[in-house]
């Protein structure tokens, strides 16, 4: 499968240029690859290695450390149900059980129609709204069996297409630094002195 498309390669170069060292762009580029294909392909990892100056083994070593990157196709919607303490105290286990029944897959499984992948997740920083879950990293709070069912139905019916992009896309807004506004990014070893504004005088 796919290396980064020309368009994404251009975007990748733009992202790389924001960092003092190219390798720092590794994780953002892996996200870009996952956004393109829905999961991270071997070709994409090899391509990213070329772009940031790392071997494919190093790219895979980094990528596989992180929960969010998938190395095989997953559902259009990945539903992560939190099972850590606060959510567990508020009934996460029952919710997971219900979700398995509703979707007909075990935790970690993907539905026949390739619509849903169900996963047990760890704390999602919404502990007061327990139990909570994320669909492609979009929250649902204080989830009940009923609200879970309607969530699944809405997703199936495409009623949430505007809120929830398909798996791979996290943020839909990208940072873009206007060249004329950029202060300037320099390789760390080429900077020898303090910033010129750091001279004991007020800057304004």
């Amino acid at each position: 499968m796919a290396r980064l498309s020309d368009e994404n390669t251009k975007l990748a170069r733009e992202i790389i240029a924001r960092y003092p060292k190219p390798r720092s762009a590794m994780i953002p580029l892996l996200h870009l690859a996952q956004e393109q294909d829905g999961w991270v392909t071997e070709d994409a990892m090899a391509h990213i290695g070329e772009l940031v100056g790392a071997t494919p083994a190093e790219v895979y070593g980094t990528a596989s450390f992180y929960e969010m990157f998938k190395f095989h196709p997953v559902g259009k919607y990945v539903i992560n149900i939190c099972g850590t303490m606060s959510c567990a105290l508020m009934g996460a286990e029952d919710l997971m059980h219900h979700a398995e029944q509703k979707l007909g897959v075990r935790m970690g499984g993907t539905t026949e129609d390739g619509m849903f992948t169900l996963e047990r997740a760890e704390c999602q920083a919404a502990c007061t709204e327990a139990p909570c879950l994320q669909t492609n990293y979009r929250f649902s709070f204080r989830v009940t069996n009923e609200s879970f069912d309607s969530l699944v139905d809405d997703l199936r019916a495409g009623r949430l297409d505007n809120e929830v992009p398909s798996h791979g896309t996290v943020a839909r807004v990208r940072q873009s630094i206007p060249p004329d506004r950029q202060a300037g990014i320099h390789p760390p070893d080429e900077v020898r002195d303090a910033p010129e504004w750091f001279d004991g005088r007020p800057a304004l």
Partner: peptide
């Protein structure tokens, strides 16, 4: 020649090469 690397995490950490490399 960083052709082997740790992969996965925690208790599943393992040394591996990249597939077919």
């Amino acid at each position: 020649d960083p052709l082997i690397s740790f992969t996965q995490r925690g208790n599943n950490t393992q040394v591996m090469t990249f597939p077919d490399e």
